[in-house]
Computed example of a mutant assay.
Amino acid sequence: MSSQAPPKTLLRRPDVEKRTGLKRAHIYALMKQGEFPQAVPLAGRAVAWISDEIDNWISGRIQQARSGNVA
């Protein structure tokens, strides 16, 4: 029996905004600062984010908040 990782899911910006509660400008500002997962180019100007990376970012923010280290 082979253990395979589940397929990666790509999220478009509206889905990332819904999951994180952040708006477009803030997402891109955090990306520029290296504090948010980078978008993956799809085609032309279309980009998406890897769902696992967004989920990990959210988990990290929760851990920071619980430990009192949120900026």
Rank of each mutant, 00 (worst) to 15 (best):
W49S: 08
L22E: 02
S59T: 10
P41N: 11
A71Q: 05
W49A: 07
V16T: 02
R66M: 10
F36E: 06
R13K: 04
Q63R: 04
G44R: 09
G44Y: 12
R19P: 04
G60S: 06
T20H: 13
A39R: 04
R66N: 15
G34D: 05
W57Y: 14
R12D: 13
V40R: 13
A46R: 14
L22P: 09
L30W: 02
L10G: 15
R12L: 08
A43L: 04
K8T: 15
A65S: 14
A71K: 10
Q63D: 09
L22Q: 11
R24P: 02
S2H: 12
K23N: 01
R24S: 10
S51M: 13
A65H: 08
T9F: 04
A46H: 14
A29P: 02
H26N: 10
R13M: 12
G68P: 10
G34E: 10
Q33H: 04
G60Y: 02
A71H: 03
K18I: 00
G21L: 09
D52C: 03
N56Q: 15
Q4L: 11
K8H: 09
A29K: 13
V47P: 01
V16L: 05
L11R: 05
D15M: 13
Y28L: 08
A43K: 12
A25Y: 03
Q38M: 01
H26Y: 04
A71T: 10
S59C: 02
F36A: 11
W49P: 04
A48D: 02
A48H: 00
S51Y: 11
G44F: 08
L30A: 09
V47M: 03
S51R: 13
A46Q: 15
A43Y: 07
T9M: 06
W57H: 08
K18M: 01
P7T: 13
S2P: 14
R24K: 11
